[in-house]
């Protein structure tokens, strides 16, 4: 839990300080923003926190507007957004959820409620990360399969295959690299007759000759 970073954005320094203290006590890493513009900038960074607790009414970009902008972005793991709203503003809550917030907490926040809602967020973020990771690995696997579906330049004589770096590879090493296949070497009946049997016969003859020499 402690490695989950959370952005807390509120223009009221009192509320911001208390919310941050509640989250820090529970072991979260907290980043602070004192208005909507700062919050939006923090969420643009590559190391942006996956969970954001945003005040509804802030100078600059307000909470719902940040929700809308985040939801318009194509993100593998979208930010989990919790809005801070007044206790009796049900119209605000509906508007906030419609704008794309995942949840809301009324102000002044109750510590237990805030932490319970944030931990739901942490769970969702964890699932999203696991899912995004799985999708990435599947895409990698799929791109390998696609490489095998394409047109392969193969030498008509030695049957080696030319790879993307213009190297000629043995069929088996090419396929081993571009798929999950591993080869176990053996021989077919035709090749036994054509290659293996003559070699075995030659070996027999050598042994016979060798015997002849020792006998001589």
């Amino acid at each position: 839990m402690s490695d989950v970073p959370i952005l807390v954005a509120d223009d009221d320094s009192v509320s911001r300080t208390v919310v941050a203290a509640m989250l820090r006590k529970a072991g979260y890493q907290v980043q602070l923003a004192s208005d909507g513009d700062q919050a939006w900038a923090a969420l643009q960074r590559p190391t942006a926190p996956s969970i954001a607790v945003l005040d509804w009414m802030m100078p600059g970009i307000d909470g719902p507007e940040i929700c809308k902008r985040i939801r318009q972005k194509d993100m593998a793991s979208p930010t989990y957004i919790i809005l801070l709203t007044s206790r009796d503003a049900s119209a605000d809550i509906v508007a906030g959820l419609r704008a794309g917030a995942n949840d809301y907490v009324t102000k002044p926040p109750n510590e237990d409620e805030l932490l319970a809602r944030v931990s739901v967020g942490a769970r969702v973020v964890g699932l999203q990360h696991a899912l995004a990771d799985r999708v990435r690995r599947l895409e990698e696997a799929l791109s390998n399969v696609k490489q095998l579906q394409g047109l392969l330049p193969i030498c008509s004589y030695c049957k080696r295959i030319r790879d993307d770096q213009n190297y000629w590879q043995q069929v088996e090493s090419y396929i081993t690299v571009h798929s999950g296949v591993q080869f176990s070497h053996s021989y077919c009946p035709d090749c036994y007759e054509q290659h293996v049997k003559p070699q075995l016969d030659a070996l027999d003859r050598e042994i016979d000759d060798g015997d002849g020499q020792t006998r001589a």
Binding site: D12, V14, T17, V18, R24, E111
Partner: peptide
């Protein structure tokens, strides 16, 4: 009292911090 319970060892007293902020704003 609840705010004071959020205090962490080695950190400044939260009640003082918050009341000073409030009085200033």
């Amino acid at each position: 009292k609840r705010l004071r319970q959020l205090n962490q060892p080695g950190q400044p007293d939260l009640v003082t911090e918050v009341l000073v902020l409030f009085r200033a704003d």
